[in-house]
Amino acid sequence: MTLVALHHWFRDHATAILTAEVTRSRRWDASVVALSVVIVLGFHLWIGLRTDFVPCRLDCGETYEVFIQARNLDRFGWRYAWGLQDMASNPERNAHPMLYTHNQNLTSLPYLLLLFKLGVREIHAQAVWFTLPFLLGLAYLYLAVKAVSHDGMLAGLCLLNAASLYLLVELWGFQAHRLWSWAVTWGMVYHLVQWSHPR
């Protein structure tokens, strides 16, 4: 058997394996999603209670940085730095602003500022509210894979795997800045596909 024939044999078998479908069952689809939700919430609560909702195992630096930036905006208003992020932490005005000029923070900064305005002023209290955009991102993951593949089981299994990834997913669900990665990526995918394939 030549290498080409061997590759064709391998490719045909791989194709047959990949073509298989899971029998459609709404009950099973719902069970997988329910299991994922239980794992996500269980993990989130466990990590949150152990760390006051700001785990530092991998990184929490950006959470503290964006908290300082939002606190400065809340304290001094928009006009003193014209909305540019200010990293100075002294409560006195004459120590400000130390500016950050690169990308505008369009996610966590307005979100934390909103929490300040709503009276949630302590970093650990704010961190509890990070759960909402994180869960929104995971919901988008499910919706996006389902919109692309038209298969609830496939979408549910992707969600289940995401829910069970401790270092790669769960810990980042608390990091003020990076937790938006899920909503941004899968939100874009979901809406782009829905726009392109109207029902």
Binding site: V145, M153, C158, L160, N161, L165
Partner: peptide, 18 residues
């Protein structure tokens, strides 16, 4: 380990499970 490749990883694991 900031989230970037994880989006690919999650899909890969989901497809494998499927």
């Amino acid at each position: 380990l900031m989230p970037l490749a994880v989006h690919w990883v999650v899909l890969l694991l989901g497809l494998t499970s499927y």
